[in-house]
Design a protein around this nucleic acid. Structure first.
Length: 827
DNA sequence: CTTGCATTTTTTTTT
DNA sequence: AAAATGCAAG
């Protein structure tokens, strides 16, 4: 038998061995056991970086290579689409592309959509149902609350939404919730009404929300045994990654799929053929990395696995192949503060490595500057940008980082956050596609009814909805019959005109069997052209609309790209893919950029160098987690996840003050910092340094002290902190820039933190990015920088808007600056 | 119906 | 600081 192994994988054996040798090459005994296990249920407790992906892929490859399973009998669930693609790729490299054809490797949500599209007609949906994302659900709930005037009961949109989501994750529907409801509580009665109405409208819109995708699939299996039997029979090996983050609905789904097949439920032609035993289940997880309790993840699923599956085997993977011992020591030490956990200690043979680097900035910007400077140093010493990542707790923290990165000409990309598909103009354009795919969906239709502006306002929309309700028809149908409403001729024409466009395009999608459907990009192009969507954006005075028009054109390229990758991809396939992209999915390994993301998004990823920023009280642990039971423990796990992403270098940074809601607040070091043995951290500037050096403290900070009064002043807070930490934070005190010694860095810092002088050029900073126009610089020029003061240009590289100046500042050391946007002037 | 301005609220994390 | 909301004028 011939086989291919990943040449990048150091464990790839020399050619000539048996397949089994190749399969197990480079694995430790526990990993081998996990690859070779055959039986009903296997639990792999896999510590961070313990090679579980390798184990899972080899396990699948082994099943395929020995013909124990056909590819179509394998269902592997991953946490992101990117992880799914990677796993598929690695299995294919082991057994060949053809051998792996037909495996289901996907996320819970993608797998469920696939099942639901196939089976939805069993229970009152069509295959072209819409998937409502959180924003869609929110809009619908908001509408319902308004209609029912439920806000007078103290019910908020987000409150109702969270509650509904929580209930759905517990597989509770309106009726089961009603059974236990307290009908003497008017608020609860009102909530019940909202829940009922929400459910009804999803059904009539032919739509599922995110939670439904899982919950309704479970419902489908439970209500229709003949459907369940097909999938129980089909999937012989089910593997679930990140099992610690499954919620009850996902747990129930796995339970349904691993039931023994009831012969009588199968179609006649399948009865008595094939396997009737329950599928074999493999789950992989690590309770120390459970960070999704807020969206219903239930740690008990993994803790009680052995009870749920009495015949199961458990394997522990504790050897870490990713990080240095210093990084692991820090991680172990932090996580050991969570009681109620099985003791588990990661170890490595890699060696202790560099110390962890700590830094305390005076502000979020100061911290960001440190991060940028250190990244530049790492890059100068040969580390690729794509091997570096910056993590933070909240998306809002990206602002300061982006600001500094742009000025420093650091190539970066932000994962997640305000995603492309969340932009209003993109949602509008997507709504056109949704309306064509699913004419029953009034939410999508409402969204585009007056985009571009057609003079169809709220009153007209209400009239149409009224007509639809009175005639037991859809909003879309009401638009077709707009003449019957007796509105003005202009509005009526606008409405019927839009209805005609939508009907025309829909006719190219709803084609008879055997006829080819129109392609997503052609559909979008036609819709945009006939509605004048892009021209309307270009015709306005708002300067941002040009960027919006470009975004819509970008969406058009996305549809073309999709077609290139999926030649047979339908409109529905495209809509599904877009609905289910995860933050980590737009990671592009070839981008050559530094990656910025939240700690949650970072799960499952790894980098040579990792910067954990904002390690402060109220941020990590986050203020909002304080009230939740188990909140601080989950935040600690989040910190643990962040630490364990790093292979070689780990940086921990925080700031003494942080801007929030437009005002500056004092920040305190996170309690979790104390949990790392002090000798593991090399503080370039410790929290103590940043507060106790009165002589060199920046002006702006001194000025601010008065504002806080005695009680909340930095002085008081700082000494309290120093006492509490028993001197553990006494760092080198030399400042992080070695260029000019302590006094120089202190000066630079003072300059950086001082109130910005209101010179002409300072005012040029408009919006988020400043523009120096065609300012030209050459080596030898003297310049002045808002934060770093005066300096001399030593070199200029790059072209056009990407020109970068390397500057030796008199006090702040060497920096690289993007000439077009840096806050500089020639002197 | 649309536009512009004033006011208020908002940030945890995500499929 | 930015986004969402509300209100009044055109």
């Amino acid at each position: 038998m011939t086989f291919v192994l990943d040449p990048r994988d150091p464990s790839t054996p020399p050619p000539g061995g048996s397949f089994q040798d190749a399969l197990l090459e480079g694995l430790n005994p526990q990993q081998r056991q996990a690859v070779l296990y055959r039986g009903p249920a296997l639990l792999i407790i896999a510590g961070a970086g313990s090679g579980k992906t390798s184990v899972l892929t080899r396990r699948i490859a082994g099943l395929l290579a020995t013909r124990e399973a056909w590819p179509s009998q394998i269902l592997a669930i991953t946490f992101t689409n990117k992880a799914a693609a990677e796993m598929r790729e690695r299995v294919q490299q082991l057994v060949g592309r053809q051998q792996a054809e037909g495996m289901w490797i996907s996320t819970f949500h993608s797998a469920c959509v696939r099942i639901l599209r196939r089976e939805a007609e069993n229970f009152g949906f069509t295959k072209s149902f819409t998937i409502y994302d959180s924003a869609d659900s929110k809009a619908l709930i908001k509408r319902i609350i308004k209609e029912l005037e439920a806000d007078t009961f103290g019910i908020t949109v987000s409150g109702a939404m969270n509650k509904i989501s929580k209930l759905k994750n517990e597989l509770s529907d309106v009726e089961s919730y009603a059974r236990g409801a307290n009908f003497n509580d008017p608020g609860e009665v009102m909530f019940l009404q909202i829940f009922r109405e929400y459910t009804k409208r999803l059904q009539s819109a032919n739509a599922f929300d995110f939670d439904d995708l899982i919950g309704q699939t479970v419902y489908l299996f439970r209500a229709f045994p003949h459907v369940a039997a097909l999938y129980q029979r089909r999937f012989r090996h089910i593997l679930v990654d990140e099992y610690q983050d499954t919620n009850h609905a996902q747990y129930a789904l796995i339970q349904e799929l691993t039931r023994p097949v009831n012969q009588g439920d199968l179609p006649l032609d399948l009865q008595g053929k094939g396997h009737l035993d329950p599928a074999s289940l493999t789950v992989v997880g690590d309770s120390d990395q459970s960070i999704y309790a807020f969206r219903g993840a239930d740690i008990r699923n993994i803790v009680e696995f052995e009870r749920d599956f009495p015949n199961s085997t458990t394997i522990l993977l504790e050897q870490n192949y990713r990080s240095t011992q210093n990084i692991l020591d820090a991680a172990n030490s932090v996580i050991s503060n969570n009681f109620d956990r099985k003791d588990k200690k990661l170890f490595t043979t890699i060696g202790s490595g560099e110390k962890i680097v700590g830094f305390t900035g005076y502000s979020g910007h100061d911290e960001a500057q440190f991060v940028a400077d250190e990244i530049t140093k790492l890059h100068d010493s040969g580390m690729a940008y794509k091997e570096i990542a910056v993590f933070y707790r909240t998306n809002a923290q990206t602002r300061a980082l982006e600001d500094i990165f742009i000025r420093s000409a650091l190539p970066y990309r932000v994962l997640g956050g305000t995603k492309f598909y969340e932009r209003a103009e993109i949602k509008d354009a997507m709504s056109y596609l949704i309306t064509v795919a699913n004419p029953l969906d009034p939410m999508a239709l409402r969204r585009i009814m007056n985009v571009p502006k057609r003079g169809i306002g709220p009153a007209t929309e209400a009239a149409l909805q009224n007509f639809a309700d009175n005639n037991q028809t859809t909003l879309r149908d009401a638009m077709r019959n707009a003449q019957a409403l007796g509105l003005g001729p202009k509005v009526t024409g606008a409405i019927t005109g839009l209805a005609l466009i939508l009907d025309d395009v829909q006719a190219t999608v709803d084609v008879p069997e055997g006829v080819a459907q129109a392609k997503p990009s052609d559909i979008l192009k036609t819709l945009l052209d006939r509605t004048g969507f892009i021209e309307a954006l270009r015709a306005t005075r708002d300067p941002q609309d040009e960027a919006r028009a470009e975004n819509v054109e970008e969406l058009l390229s996305v549809t073309k790209e999709f077609q290139k990758n999926n030649p047979d991809g339908t409109l529905l396939d495209f809509l599904t893919e877009v609905s289910l992209v995860a933050a980590a999915d737009d990671l592009d390994d070839t981008s050559g950029t530094v990656s910025l993301m939240t700690l949650h998004t970072a799960k499952g990823l790894e980098y040579e160098a990792v910067f954990l920023t904002g390690i402060e009280e109220d941020l990590l642990p986050h203020r909002m987690s304080a009230g939740e039971p188990g909140g601080p423990a989950e935040e600690r796990r989040l910190f643990y996840v962040g630490i364990t992403r790093a292979r070689q270098r780990l940086y921990l940074s925080l700031a003494m003050t942080r801007a929030q809601f437009g005002e500056v607040n004092v920040a305190m070091p996170s309690r979790y910092l104390q949990e790392i043995p002090p000798e593991l951290i090399d503080w370039k500037q410790s929290p103590g340094d940043a507060t106790s050096r009165n002589g060199t403290q920046p002006r702006a900070l001194n000025a601010r002290r008065g504002a806080f009064g005695a009680e909340g002043s930095l002085g008081t807070g700082a000494s309290g902190f120093n006492g509490g930490f028993g001197g553990g934070f006494t760092g080198s005190g030399s400042g992080y820039e070695n260029a000019g010694g302590p006094s120089a860095t202190a000066l630079a810092r003072a300059a950086r933190n001082a109130a910005k002088p209101k010179t002409e050029w300072a005012n040029k900073i408009t919006g988020t990015v400043r523009d120096n126009g065609d300012l030209t610089l050459a080596a030898g020029d003297r310049i002045r920088h808002v934060d770093f003061g005066d300096g001399r240009v030593s070199a200029v590289t790059g072209e056009g808007t990407k020109r970068v100046a390397e500057v030796h500042f008199d006090t702040a050391g060497r920096k690289r600056l993007l000439i077009k946007v840096a806050p500089i002037e020639k002197i």
